[in-house]
C-alpha cells in the first residue's frame, strides 16, 4: 500500500509523525484564509473617503457623483483607475452600515421592465435564503440630467432601503455594432432603518447625480 505510515514513525493516536508537519501547515493556511483574514477585514474600517469633486464611473459612459465622506468599497473613480470600465460593472459606496450598490449592464427593456426583472430575481433569492421583504408601490425618479427611472422602497427584517432602475440609451459603439446601446442601471441603497433614514439626503443626491455622457432622450 502506498502509505507513508511506518511503524517506527507513529506518534499520538497512531498518526505517522512525518505527516503531521505538512498536514498542519495546510490546515493553518486554510484557517488563515477562511477565518483570520475575514475577521481582520470585519474589524478594519475604511481609511479613504471620497472627496468633493470625485466622480465614480459606474459603467462606460455613465457616472455618479458620490457624497463626500462616503467610501468607495468597489468600483473606480474617474481619473484614478487605469483598468478600462466596460458596459457591465458594479460599484459599491458605503457609509456606516449603509451601502449604495450600483450594477450596470446592457438591458433591452425600459426601467419598469428592469425593476420587474430585479424583483423576480430578488424573490427567487429570498425564497432560497428563507428571507422576505415587503415592497411599496413604484414611483418615478428623475436625475438632475433629466433622465427618468422608476423606484420602489422595501422593508426587510434587518434592512430597508430603495431600489431604483434606469435604462439609458448610449451613443453607438463598436460593441453595439453601430446601434444605440441600451444600458440598464440598478441602484440598491440599503441598511438598518435608523442609518438609512439619516443618510436619505445623501442617497437621493447620489442617485440624482447619475449622468450619461452624450445622453439620448
Amino acid at each position: 500500500m502506498a502509505s507513508a505510515v511506518d511503524a517506527a514513525a507513529t506518534g499520538v493516536r497512531g498518526i505517522d509523525r512525518r505527516t503531521v508537519g505538512p498536514a498542519l501547515l495546510v490546515l493553518a493556511l486554510a484557517v488563515l484564509m477562511s477565518v483570520v483574514l475575514p475577521m481582520l477585514d470585519a474589524e478594519t474600517s475604511y481609511r479613504h473617503q471620497v472627496h468633493s469633486g470625485d466622480v465614480v464611473e459606474v459603467a462606460d459612459g455613465i457616472t455618479l457623483s458620490p457624497t463626500p465622506g462616503w467610501a468607495l468599497a468597489s468600483g473606480a473613480l474617474v481619473g484614478h483607475a487605469r483598468t478600462p470600465i466596460g458596459s457591465t460593472a458594479a460599484t459599491q459606496l458605503v457609509e456606516g452600515g449603509v451601502s449604495v450598490y450600483v450594477q450596470a449592464a446592457p438591458f433591452a427593456g425600459d426601467p419598469s421592465a428592469l425593476l420587474t426583472r430585479v424583483n423576480r430575481i430578488d424573490a427567487e433569492l429570498e425564497h432560497a435564503r428563507g428571507s422576505a421583504a415587503a415592497t411599496t408601490g413604484r414611483y418615478p425618479v428623475t436625475t438632475r440630467q433629466g433622465l427618468a427611472g422608476v423606484a420602489e422602497d422595501f422593508v426587510g427584517v434587518s434592512r430597508q432601503g430603495t431600489i431604483v432602475a434606469f435604462v439609458f440609451r448610449l451613443p453607438p459603439s463598436a460593441v453595439s455594432q453601430g446601434q444605440p446601446a441600451r444600458e440598464g442601471v440598478e441602484v440598491v441603497a440599503a441598511g438598518p432603518a435608523g442609518p438609512v433614514s439619516q443618510d436619505r439626503g445623501d442617497i437621493v443626491a447620489m442617485i440624482r447625480s447619475i449622468r450619461v455622457r452624450h445622453a439620448h432622450a
Binding site: 481582520l40 481609511r47 468607495l72 468599497a73 473606480a76
Partner: peptide, 22 residues
C-alpha cells in the same frame, strides 16, 4: 472564496477603491 473577498476588501479599506479595482 473567503480569503479573496477579505483581502480585496482590505485593499479597498487601506488604499482606496480605485487601487483595489486596478
Amino acid at each position: 472564496l473567503l480569503g479573496n473577498d477579505a483581502v480585496m476588501s482590505l485593499y479597498a479599506k487601506a488604499f482606496g477603491g480605485s487601487f483595489a479595482f486596478d
